[in-house]
Design a protein around this nucleic acid. Structure first.
Length: 225
DNA sequence: GCGACAG
DNA sequence: ATCTTGTCGC
């Protein structure tokens, strides 16, 4: 699929922050997504090995969750990991992968945050603006905001609040495992995001699209933290 | 000045 | 994210 060029990726941390401040105004995170109309869901992930970033985008049919397309892209890792600036590290190689897609997903699920970010522009929101399509953030750990204890059953959730604003939820996707952090990326609201995440997470802690992308990106080491 | 801190 | 074995539990 094609996507319009939004901006240069070669920025200093200071410039990157300024860009986030400008782009946050374009994000639409209060629009319902018709989950029942979704036909294709994509999982997005990037693994890093020896300064090389390997991106993977896997498209699955919904609600069957069967894989219909996998695209890969690799490039030198251009930016260090800085909390709050993840999109400037993974964005370039993801842009390359998105351009290779033959199918146009109805929604993308990212391994990271949407608006649950200090400047409300996590990687799912940022790339959502590049894509011009619905995106959702699904992180394994919290970046910002606070929440009360989450119930023990699948589907239990606790609002993630930052500076008096609800930016997402800590969601239990499987009993006995830590909750995941869900937030709207772009062109999607929180209730819709939670609904889609639960419908794409039939067995494990992480949504099938994200698991498939993680696997395709080649992150085969022992993972924790 | 001291913590917190997606992947 | 990545470096890494065995082990506990369903």
């Amino acid at each position: 699929m094609q996507l319009a060029h939004r901006h240069d990726w070669s920025l200093t941390p200071s410039e990157a922050i300024a860009l986030q401040q400008r782009m946050r105004a374009e994000v639409i995170a209060d629009q319902p997504l018709d989950v029942d109309a979704v036909r294709l869901v994509a999982g997005v992930d990037v693994s890093v090995r020896d300064n090389v970033s390997q991106a993977a985008v896997v498209v699955l049919r919904f609600p069957e969750l069967t894989i219909v397309e996998t695209v890969l892209a690799a490039a030198p890792t251009p930016f260090p990991y800085v909390p709050g600036l993840l999109s400037f590290r993974e964005g370039p190689v993801l842009e390359e992968a998105f351009r290779k897609l033959k199918h146009t997903p109805d929604v993308f699920i990212f391994d990271g945050m949407g608006i649950a970010h200090p400047r409300r522009l996590g990687i799912a929101s940022h790339m959502g603006l590049w894509l011009g399509l619905p995106t959702i953030g699904c992180g394994k750990t919290r970046l910002c905001g606070r929440h009360e204890a989450v119930g023990p059953d699948k589907g239990d959730a606790a609002p993630l609040i930052d500076r008096g604003e609800t930016i997402g939820v800590a969601l239990r996707t499987r009993a006995g495992t830590n909750p995941v952090f869900i937030s709207p990326g772009h062109l999607c609201d929180l209730p819709s995001a939670v609904t889609l995440i639960l419908r794409t997470t039939p067995k494990f802690r992480l949504p099938e699209p994200v698991r498939a992308a993680h696997k395709a990106a080649g992150a085969m080491a022992s993972q924790d933290r």
